[in-house]
Design a protein around this nucleic acid. Sequence first.
DNA 1: AATTACCGACAGACAGTCGGTCGGTGAGGT
DNA 2: ACCTCACCGACCGACTGTCTGTCGGTAATT
Lengths: 214, 214
Amino acid sequence: MRVVKEAEERKKEIMDAAERLFMEKGFDGTSTNDILAAVGIARGTLYHHFPSKEHIMDGIIERLGDKILENARKAAVEKDLPVFERLVKTIMALNAGEAENIRPSEEIMEYIHQPQNALMHQKIRKLVITGVPPILAEIIKDGIEEGVFQTPWPLETMEMIVTYANTLFDEGLLDLDGEEMMGRIRAFIYNAERLLGVEEGSVPFGPELFAGGE
Amino acid sequence: MRVVKEAEERKKEIMDAAERLFMEKGFDGTSTNDILAAVGIARGTLYHHFPSKEHIMDGIIERLGDKILENARKAAVEKDLPVFERLVKTIMALNAGEAENIRPSEEIMEYIHQPQNALMHQKIRKLVITGVPPILAEIIKDGIEEGVFQTPWPLETMEMIVTYANTLFDEGLLDLDGEEMMGRIRAFIYNAERLLGVEEGSVPFGPELFAGGE
DNA sequence: AATTACCGACAGACAGTCGGTCGGTGAGGT
DNA sequence: ACCTCACCGACCGACTGTCTGTCGGTAATT
């Protein structure tokens, strides 16, 4: 049976199905046949719209990144809020935006961190590390003007903080027990305070913020 | 023609050939047939010694890690040297140990960071992030006792520093021009000083140290 | 005789290709 | 206003080449 649709619509269908399958079974664990069956199209159709399986993933990640980062940017730009609150809201927007699409629940995280998803993981990591620090750095800069923060390297410092946070929370790299993880989080907050030039204990929120994803 | 060798010797031959090929063409870009041809054995022989292609990579990385980390440990343990010098020597041992095996020259780095090597890259990253901080943290602890450094979280702090350094120098994640890279390095040193509780400018070495890999 | 390294034909799965089909659409003729 | 016909591009699915991992059997070593 032959159903004709607009290219953009088909592309979206393919990406939707692929996204679900990749989250369920991983990138390498999902064959193009799985995607074809899920969408209900033939091989040729898929390769009419995408030059390769990897390009499907690229499309998904780009779409994901656009959505998440856009939410965060909106929160980051609320200039009349106190900087701490802006920071918190922006970080929460990052977590929430992620939650809509890939809910960062345990089963999924398990899979994401499996070796077969190394490529997807690397691409998401790149998205986070290149996309998030510029947004947060703008807040930090305002905070510097207000005298709340003090650092000559706002962007680079946020890059460091985000990079480590990403490693610590998102990846399955460090397999830490609860106690070790608690230490990491406490140290992380302490070190973030040092890096941003505020005195110890002035970060008014604790580990609660860092439950889920980035 | 049939040549029989001791299992350990064959394993080493296979790992040597595979290591060279993986560095040249990447993990996914190297087929098991390439390895068979390079070693001069049959399919069955390879799978007699290794349960899978990925296990070959695991073996290579483990071997690599043992060698590199052992050198670094030796340098780290020279307790009569001043802590700064110990730090420098240990980091140089890390770079040098790496240089023996994978020379971190440009052509190779190009390949290492290609998408097809995401898995290998992730595994090396894990090795570095879990292996290196404990070694450096020991030096930091001694430095704290001497009053050179000051941080309540030596291990966690080194983990953060190493994680970011690894991202910055080893990965092709951030594609920065020379100027941007220079800023990153300066910021990195500045931030490392803050994290370790020494005053600004007391790190006596500059960007020279960070030419090659982590 | 038993163990163990070794062999290579083979199976099964997979990504990507290619020649060809068919539905929609709009321009030109009536 | 209505037809028709050429063209575009979405769509199809059989096919190719390649790849990893398996298995039954063979030869060397102890």
